[in-house]
Design a protein around this nucleic acid. Structure first.
Length: 314
DNA sequence: GCGACAG
DNA sequence: ATCTTGTCGC
């Protein structure tokens, strides 16, 4: 009688069902794309940084992407692509759309769940409103702070050939970087907005930085390079975009996607709130059959995703 | 083997 | 990611 834990169980179940061949394939894809990753500032980034430092004044566009989920649903979600002007930080473009996620969430493989959907939205923007194509995108998740040095921000950056910055709200423990007592101590030593400390991996490489993004938020965010931007530029730019803990591009994307879900599915959520009685194991007459069944066929689940990377067949 | 694990 | 209450502050 553990109904409440079912969603968690289901997620764990999915992960354990994932065939090694698929993970291997995904790892190979990551390694392949990683060769195209660029870790220096693009010319646009250099201009924006100059603007930050008051050396020039100009207008720039910064993108933010985020995905919000339908409660208790691991497939249906709303993706948002937002563009803000900089340094004003006003929303100049927003696009929300319902999506279906084909792959499950697996730490280290987030890109295979989200990247291609975000890519589609970016292409839509490029096609319909090219004047709003941003010079850089902030991504929910990590860049090179990743088990294989190629997180979602890198992945999306390479796919779009656009500068991307990874902004994570939680530390992904990678390459010896742990959320231990020492880490917690360093966090306590971040006394004001703009303070940072380096996240140093085993090989003494700096994989990212923890940034206290504003005075009012003691918990840092974790910045790492995605593509075509250096870590220091990324940190500076993110900090300039922080009215709150989460930088505005990402935050606006989060707000807009949740709002979209609330308007579309709000009533159904209300139903679930009416729990004068306990669990409503009643038949959800909508799809009483296997249609809404979670995952009993893994191959079916991965069919679409796999096709994306099947181009290498002889 | 055990724990950790972006969203 | 999502759930959840009140509370403190600009």
């Amino acid at each position: 009688m553990n109904d409440s834990g079912s969603t968690v169980d289901r997620q764990e179940e999915q992960q354990s069902q994932i065939p090694d061949e698929i993970k291997d394939k995904w790892e190979r894809e990551q390694m392949k794309l990683k060769k195209q990753m660029v870790l220096t500032d693009s010319s646009d980034i250099s201009k924006i940084i100059s603007c930050c430092q008051g050396k020039t004044s100009d207008n720039f566009l910064i993108g933010g992407v985020d995905i919000s989920f339908v409660k208790g649903d691991h497939v249906n979600a709303c993706a948002a692509l937002i563009v803000l002007n900089f340094p004003q930080l006003e929303v100049v473009y927003e696009d929300c759309q319902m999506i279906k996620l084909t792959a499950p969430y697996i730490p280290g493989f987030l890109a295979f769940r989200e990247a291609y959907l975000l890519e589609e939205m970016y292409n839509k923007l490029k096609k319909t409103q090219p004047q709003y194509v941003p010079q850089v995108i902030m991504v929910d998740g990590n860049g090179i702070l990743h088990p294989r040095g190629f997180g979602l921000a890198c992945h999306l950056g390479v796919l779009l050939d656009t500068p991307c910055i990874g902004v994570a709200k939680n530390l992904f423990q990678v390459d010896g970087i742990e959320n231990d007592d020492d880490h917690q101590l360093k966090i306590k030593q971040l006394s004001k907005g703009g303070d940072t400390f380096k996240l140093v991996g085993t090989s003494c490489k700096v994989l990212g930085k923890a940034l206290r993004s504003c005075d009012s938020a003691p918990n840092p965010i974790y910045i790492s390079t995605g593509h075509k931007v250096t870590l220091d530029s990324a940190v500076e730019l993110v900090y300039k975009c922080c009215k709150h803990r989460v930088p505005e591009p990402t935050r606006q994307a989060d707000i807009k996607s949740r709002e979209y879900l609330r308007v579309s599915f709000g009533s159904e959520h209300e139903e679930q709130k009416n729990k004068g009685k306990k669990k409503q194991r009643t038949k959800t007459t909508k799809h009483s059959n296997s249609e809404c069944n979670p995952v009993d066929n893994v191959e079916e689940l991965f069919e679409d995703t796999c096709c994306l990377f099947d181009g290498e067949n002889t």
